[in-house]
Amino acid sequence: MAWLFLLPSLVLFLLFTGLPVVAALVISFTQWDLFNPPQFVGLQNYTSLFNDRIFGQVMGNTGLYVLASVPIQIVLGLLFALGLNRVIHGKTVLRIAYFLPVVTSTIAAALVWSWLFNTNFGVVNALLSAVGIAEPPKWLSSSKWAMPAVIIVSVWQNLGNGMVLFLAGLQNIRQDVYDAAALDAARGWKRLWFITLPLLSPTTFFVLIITLIGSFQVFELVFIMTNAGPANATNTLVFYIYQNGFQFYQMGYASAAAMILFAIVLFITLVQYRLQNRWVHYG
């Protein structure tokens, strides 16, 4: 009986998730350009990746993006949630406003920000010259400033996600615990540090994991804003997978890169689950 209910999901799951995971691993051991039959090459794709100078750059870019974008998103998201939690009227409207970028298509967001970052006619540089910066960055056409621009947009787009989750977490903390803290002289920063943050830690844990995993998958922003340029300065792991698979038709090589993405995500998740009992408090 139960299996009848499960049948549609099982078929779809096996066809589009279960088998493909295994297949991706198998393909990563082959050389395959889609036109000729695949050839088994063992670990060659992986060794090539490690000797691939561009791949090294790609991993560096991705790491930089994650290390900058994730902490900013989490800290800002938490601060805004703490602020919003104190607002009494208009909380819903503010929450919707902060969340709009999250539901906006990344393509549209990337387009509008490309325009805002336009070197000669963009708003960002207009503001920078208004505050007296004589030679504002060339942003997307500068190999130095393209990545910071992408990071800024990612923070803008994803901030609301963490914030909404933090806000829900804050609203889950019981008032009577705050009352007890008031009687125990835990006020202001002390209350934040000793009561609010520890009780929020399950949410922080969750937000950290999904933000980290999401960040490793950055693609559309780079695709639209910089097309991975200039000179691969913003080429990231998923873009590299796409590029090798669907522009260079190196399915094996792209799959090997995808397996590395998978390994990173698995590693982060497992490490976090191991570490969580050191700092996450479940009520």
Partner: peptide
């Protein structure tokens, strides 16, 4: 003053 709450209000962490 010290207070004992109906829900105890112990700090769970």
């Amino acid at each position: 003053v010290a207070m004992v709450f109906q829900s105890y209000a112990l700090y769970p962490h």
